[in-house]
Amino acid sequence: MTELIKLENVAIGYEQDPFVDFINLSIEKNQFWGVLGPNGSGKTTLLKTILNLISPVSGTVFFHNELVFGYVPQNEKFDPIFPISVCEMVSMGRYSRVKPGRRLSNIDNEIVMRSMDSAGISHLKDRTFSSLSGGEKQRTLLARAIAGEPNILVLDEPTASVDIKGEAQIMELVRNIQTESKLAVLMVSHFLKTVSEFSDHLILIDKDSNTFLSGTKIEVLQKESLDKFFGLNLNLD
């Protein structure tokens, strides 16, 4: 097992104001992690701490030397005024390996084309990103994430703006990418069913009760913990 990211006694929050602390977590190659929690529970803050976009309030986050992130943000965050084409969008995923001031090489462009093929969006390459449907946007963002040849794929609510059919297609695509490239996956979602179906490891987080629970799916998906997190009397049968 190769450890890609390790959190040791980490407290997450903003401006020295921790809302969940004593987080210990180890993400290894080929694992599929799902992150669950109610609205405003700190899922996105945890994700941004893992991505090193914000610093932990305390504790240490260790990253593997050769760690390359493939990040799929929520598609609503992109300003539709930018007339970025699908091809230009996917090319940006390659920038993790191309320094500022350098251009994409022919090899980079080939990888971009291959990523679009893998995501099934080659026919959309000249379309403007903002004109795509929710499902097409997510596939484009997935292609962009894999164009950087990452060793961990981080997805923030990848099925939030798609219908049931689109959700199934995107999750299948994520599973295929993980299987083929032997990536680690970390996925934030509201949907317990989606996360529990595809993940082998789970994180439950809730800042209101300062609770963080992580482990294998079987360890975490216990009636008591789900009742506590979602405030529901669930029947797991």
Binding site: F69, P73, M92, Y95
Partner: peptide
């Protein structure tokens, strides 16, 4: 011309630019 891709990138997607350690 030299920084075309970088100026577009930091203008369009600040978060990813930060993730990729762009200045």
């Amino acid at each position: 011309l030299i920084y075309y891709k970088d100026f577009i990138f930091v203008s369009f997607d600040t978060e990813s630019a930060k993730l990729f350690k762009y200045p």
